[in-house]
């Protein structure tokens, strides 16, 4: 077990709600995360599970109003982020914590050259001249393998993969201690995906950056992550080390996710899938939030909210099975 002092990021009971005219949207419900320096956490879940909102909440970028962020602790680098004033938070953003956004096509300002956009990030946090920042920015572009002679071009002159590399260059411009990568490869085609992942691995090893990798791609997680947290309806339903989750998934949802992956060694006609849809965060089910889709569900599941049960050291699952509430039920691997 890691000791508290080693933790770079420690978020406890993070809750994000959006107060809209149509009711309260429960986007994130009591998420706890912790991460040591140099560690990579995979935050996995379907679209709408609250992964991006969790990331934005860590950066203090949840729009308010209508959003409201609460937590019992958000410690980063021995600093309580909740106590920061906006001007102090700004010094953290893009500097110690930076974020790669999902869609490189829309994440870059179309009216500024890529170098300007990287230099801006540098100048926000370091007291250097415009010219020096530009030189740094060009170096940064070369780090992500964009040749210097393209440095003064505009985003529309780059391909999708190159744009994502520019976005990564912006995120890494100030050597952040924590990088939040929100589906960095989703918008890219497979060959470019591999390049981007390779690049991130390389940077992780070189700079010892801690990474929160938000994705719904279990393949990427296995490639790059040390720890995994599975999110469902704004909650972390299962978390543990990569081996624990992959070799021994204990939550029915996690199990369903793995069951929906194609296996090259098995000859099956259809892939199994999880029936139903992610619940509407404005109208979440009572009790366990997964019970309407869970094949192990019993009436008790719609009455009691499961705790985050520690099954083995460091491996947690939010399911009533591990509280002895469902006698005789056992989650069988990958079915």
């Amino acid at each position: 077990m890691e000791n508290d002092r080693d933790k770079l990021l420690d978020v406890q009971d993070l809750t994000v709600r959006f107060y809209t005219d149509d009711g309260v949207v429960h986007a994130v419900n009591g998420v706890s995360l912790s991460l040591a320096e140099g560690e990579t956490l995979g935050l996995v879940g379907e679209t709408g599970a609250g992964k991006t909102t969790t990331a934005l909440a860590i950066l203090g970028l949840v729009p308010s109003p209508p959003g409201k962020t609460e937590s019992s602790a958000t410690i980063f680098d021995r600093q309580d982020l909740r106590l920061l004033k906006e001007s102090e938070y700004r010094k953290v953003r893009g500097n110690k914590i930076s974020m790669i956004f999902q869609d490189p096509m829309t994440s870059l300002n179309p009216t500024m050259t890529v170098t300007e956009q990287i230099a801006e990030a540098i100048r926000n946090h370091r007291n250097i001249t415009r010219q020096e920042a530009k030189v740094e920015a060009v170096k940064m572009l070369e780090t992500v393998r964009i040749p210097a002679d393209r440095a003064f071009e505009y985003p529309h002159q780059f391909s999708g993969g190159m744009k994502q590399r520019v976005v990564i260059a912006i995120a890494l411009a100030c050597n952040p201690k924590l990088l939040i990568a929100d589906e960095p490869t989703t918008a890219l085609d497979v060959t470019i995906q591999a390049q981007v992942l390779e690049l991130m691995k390389e940077l992780k090893n070189k700079l010892n950056t801690a990474i929160v990798m938000i994705t719904h791609d279990l393949g990427i997680v296995s490639e790059i992550c040390d720890k995994v947290a599975i999110m469902y309806a704004g909650e972390i339903v299962e978390s543990g080390s990569l081996e624990q989750i992959y070799d021994n998934p204990r939550h029915p949802y996690t199990n369903g996710l793995f069951g929906s992956l194609p296996d090259i060694e098995k000859d099956v006609e259809f892939l199994s899938s999880i029936e139903g849809m992610m619940p509407d965060p404005a109208d979440l089910p009572v009790g366990c939030k997964f019970h309407p889709r869970c094949k192990y569900a019993r009436p008790v599941c719609s009455e009691q909210i499961p705790n985050n049960n520690e099954i083995e050291p460091g491996h947690f699952a939010r399911c009533l099975i591990y509280e002895g509430k469902l006698p005789g039920q056992e989650v069988k691997k990958y079915v």
């Binding site: 970028l61 953290v92 953003r93 869609d103 994440s107 300002n109 801006e120 976005v167 912006i170």
Partner: peptide, 26 residues
């Protein structure tokens, strides 16, 4: 509401810069 505005904020740009350099020009 565009992504690059969120990106500018995530870079640590002051709100004034976000507004005039990034939002207004577009």
């Amino acid at each position: 509401r565009q992504d690059y505005i969120r990106m500018a904020r995530a870079k640590g740009c002051p709100e004034r810069v976000v507004l005039f350099r990034h939002a207004l020009r577009n």
